[in-house]
């Protein structure tokens, strides 16, 4: 994972060459050689937070260090695999993202960063992708970068700052503290919130299926 050269799906699910049940987000990015689209970003966020939430308190939360850890499964589920080295103590050189044990908000922060990087994949350092405001807000809040720009951070949380119509009300984002908060925001992105589980699962299922199709095609060409 994270190496150079042509994409070789097979490592992530331990089924090299055979039928695959999961692809890592990194494999998907490398196969397409382009970033994920916005709908896929919403879907991966929703599905990943769903599986983290389902895993519950029984599992020690871990930061997401790379897209290689995010697994998109054939059935549209998205799970988080431990990073290499996560089994033991974090290495002294692990840095800010390297601590294994952390809070739920820290996992969300790291997930937001990795999702942004997947949206930014392949872009040059001096280029920036124009994201839709709702997705940018989601990532801003997940990654906890809202305060960093020195702008009016309070606007999202304050209910009395001129948010008038329903759309504004819907977009109003309070601080994200849990996987459930992220899922609620992702659901609010849809016209019918109750469709979120089926919709986002279908988006991830399609992402897996289309990537596998591309992989098969590229393998034949090879």
């Amino acid at each position: 994972a994270g190496g150079e050269g042509p994409p070789e799906p097979g490592e992530a699910a331990g089924a090299a060459g055979g039928s695959r049940d999961a692809l890592s987000l990194e494999e998907i990015l490398r196969l397409y050689n382009q970033p994920i689209n916005e709908e896929q970003a919403w879907a991966v966020c929703y599905q990943c937070c769903g599986s983290l939430r389902a895993a519950g308190a029984g599992r020690q939360p871990r930061r997401v260090r790379s897209a290689a850890q995010i697994r998109v499964w054939r059935d549209g589920q998205v799970t988080l695999a431990p990073a290499a080295g996560d089994a033991g103590e974090p290495p002294a050189s692990a840095g800010k993202l390297g601590y294994s044990h952390c809070t739920e908000t820290e996992v969300i922060e790291s997930l937001g960063i990795i999702i942004y990087k997947a949206l930014d994949y392949g872009l040059k350092e001096n280029e920036e992708r124009e994201l839709s405001p709702p997705l940018e807000q989601l990532i801003d809040h997940m990654a906890n970068t809202v305060e960093a720009d020195g702008s009016n951070d309070e606007g999202y949380e304050a209910a009395d700052e001129g948010l008038e119509d329903e759309e504004d009300e819907k977009r109003k984002i309070s601080a994200i503290r849990s996987y459930r908060d992220v899922m609620k925001l992702c659901a609010a992105h849809l016209s019918t919130e109750s469709e979120a589980p089926n919709h986002y699962q279908a988006v991830c299922r399609a992402l897996f299926a289309e990537t596998m199709e591309l992989h098969t095609f590229l393998s034949k060409i090879k």
Partner: peptide
């Protein structure tokens, strides 16, 4: 279908890319 369509703008110091970069 399946193709990402997005606009690219110059990176801005106060943009989300810069803020994310500061985090990593």
């Amino acid at each position: 279908k399946g193709k990402s369509l997005y606009k690219i703008k110059p990176r801005h110091d106060s943009g989300i890319k810069a803020k994310i970069s500061m985090k990593t």
